[in-house]
Simulated assay, not measured.
Amino acid sequence: MTAISVRNLWKEYGDQIVLEDINLEFAARSFVALVGPSGCGKTTFLRMLLSEEKATRGEILIDGKPIAPEPGADRGVVFQRYSVFPHLTVLGNVLLAAEFSQSPFTARLFGTARRAAEEEARALIAEVGLAGAEDKYPAALSGGMQQRLALAQAIMRKPRILLLDEPFGALDPGIRADIHQLMRRLWNSCEMTVVMVTHDLREAFTLATRVIAFERRRNRPEERERFGATIAKDIEVWPPRIAGQLDLFTPDRDDPVLAEGQGRDDPARRSA
């Protein structure tokens, strides 16, 4: 279980203030969506959770301890652009995540360790809906399939925190609905806390347990550098969503299962 605490956080680039006095508490296994206009610091905040950016003031704690100064296997990330290796097959991409995790110096596994990792990788590939595509290269996959692969690659390392930076923004609506179902399954089945940046409010309220809006309260041209974004809204999604309890999710009108006339209490939906 991983909880995140953000205390008196400021981020500045020279004279420009990007984030101003951010205070947040994320419960373990929550799914938090960050929304707000472009340029308000959402992605900067996500990069700070990944340790790609340093706080100017304040601190970020994970389970009560200061966040590691460098990105690590405890925090997985999926970007809008498909961050997979084009020269590796689907199986190779997912297996590489295990190799980096279990053998950080050589990134190679052998014998029993490799067979176990390959078995786990194939099971995860099937879980994300890519069974039968293990030997294909990313160039032969559609956008939705590449994003499924990116999710599998990130989750293969068993991160305690999964960070999503507008991961579904480039997908067609129908494909996005399928990926939403996949994301629900993964969040429910994996022991992880999820923080997602999105511009899509419907997506935020469809997936998240909590929606947090960043906003610059003073946004006139002469104020933009000296006043950063703060938390404008902090909304707990109702009814509550609890990891492992799929039947509490509010139905999505784009859900392919619902399109066939099945309601949220239908067994097929609960097992989706």
Rank of each mutant, 00 (worst) to 15 (best):
V32N: 11
A33G: 01
W187G: 09
Q102D: 12
G14F: 00
T106L: 12
D200H: 09
R160H: 13
E99P: 14
D200M: 08
W10N: 11
E53K: 08
G64C: 13
V195Y: 01
M145V: 03
A259P: 00
A68S: 14
R253H: 11
V18T: 10
H180Q: 12
K42E: 05
I242D: 02
T206V: 02
R114T: 12
R29H: 15
V237E: 02
E59D: 07
W187Y: 13
A27D: 13
M145C: 00
Q153I: 08
S5G: 14
P66T: 14
E203F: 02
S51V: 14
E222D: 15
T89Y: 09
Q80D: 09
Q146M: 11
E59T: 14
K233A: 03
V194L: 07
I231K: 09
E191Y: 04
Y82L: 05
G174T: 11
L50M: 13
E70L: 11
A117F: 14
A150M: 01
G228K: 02
G144R: 05
R253V: 09
K54A: 13
W10I: 01
G111K: 14
R7F: 00
V78R: 01
E70I: 12
F105H: 14
D165V: 06
L246T: 14
L258T: 11
D265L: 07
A140N: 10
S103C: 15
D172C: 09
R108W: 09
I125T: 04
F105C: 12
I4G: 04
E127K: 14
E225K: 12
R114Y: 12
D200E: 07
D234P: 00
E70N: 14
R184C: 03
L9M: 07
H199T: 07
G92M: 08
A107D: 10
V77G: 07
A140Y: 01
P66G: 12
G244K: 06
D178N: 10
A170E: 07
F227M: 04
D21F: 00
A154G: 11
L141Q: 05
G58H: 10
G76D: 02
N93K: 06
S142G: 13
P71R: 14
L91C: 12
G228N: 01
L141W: 05
G263K: 10
A133I: 03
V84N: 12
L186K: 10
V78Y: 00
E260S: 15
E223Y: 13
A107N: 15
R210N: 05
E134R: 14
E70H: 15
R224L: 00
H199G: 08
R29M: 06
E222M: 10
A268S: 11
R29I: 06
L141N: 05
H87W: 12
D234A: 00
P167R: 07
A55K: 07
F168T: 11
L130C: 10
T89M: 08
I235M: 04
A213R: 15
G169C: 05
I179D: 01
Y13S: 05
T89A: 06
A107M: 15
L141E: 04
A113I: 04
R122M: 15
V211L: 03
G58M: 06
G39S: 01
R253L: 10
L141H: 04
Y82N: 13
E25A: 09
H87V: 06
H180L: 03
L162T: 09
F45G: 04
F85T: 08
F85L: 12
F205G: 02
G228M: 02
A121I: 12
D21G: 02
V90A: 11
R29N: 15
